[in-house]
Amino acid sequence: MYLYDTTYLRPGSIDEAKALYDAGESPAFLSGGHTLLPAMKGHLARHDRLIDIRRIPELQGIAEDESYLTIGAATRHCDVAAAPVVRNCIPALAGMVGTIGDVQVRHVGTIGGSLANNDPAADYPSAALALDAIFRTDQRTLTAEEYFQGLYTTALEPGELLVSVSFRKPEHAGYAKFRNPASRYALAAAFVAVHADGVRVAITGAGNDGVYRWHEAESALGHKFESESLDPLRADMENMSSDMHANAEYRAELVKFCTQKAVTNQNCITLL
């Protein structure tokens, strides 16, 4: 479990980071590294340079304005979970971040790392999608719909750097997660956010293409925001992923149950 030869670089600015990236043959940005480094240790990835972006000032900090909560891409999970501003304005987000990985992982992992990776079982993508987030990169601004492009895929081009993510403040929101008993990633999880213009329901852990919006649930909840509104619904099995831990049928059931729990619990709840 040793990495292939690599060069560690720590730029102080976005421009410097980009220049270092462009000069590399197979470069990678390094943030928390809790996905990248295990892949590199297992020799399933090889990068000639690792560009550590955690100290770049533009990528730091949590700020609030009237409509949005903006979090710098290099902000660690523990800092988001503990920040009073997050806890006050979107308690479900703070709660959700407090369930990512474990204590040690939260002390290192970052929001940018998680969102740039877009693991189909990660928590953050569902919050970003349900909270109608705006993704700011060093080049452009993207909506969550534009940003997430399927399994492990985002709109980020090679060398494009995620700078910050702005979550639209909801009237209220809830997150419910059913964990994979082995990995502790979500087998299925739902982030439900009520905005002035409607309800957004984002599902992670379950879909073949990663995070997605469950539109039927959104309209049912838009009609009446209570868990019973979802009773007649069935999550679409066609799109559910299937593996040794849960088949599509079970995932569909969990999706519905998590969504109902996210409706009734205005924070974050872990169901297993």
Binding site: M1, G33, H34, P38
Partner: peptide, 23 residues
């Protein structure tokens, strides 16, 4: 190999971290 067992936990700047997943 996957930063799950915690046997490598140390305290870095006052925070518990997994030293197998930090350069």
């Amino acid at each position: 190999d996957t930063s799950q067992c915690g046997a490598c936990t140390v305290i870095l700047n006052g925070e518990a971290v997994k030293s197998c997943t930090i350069l």
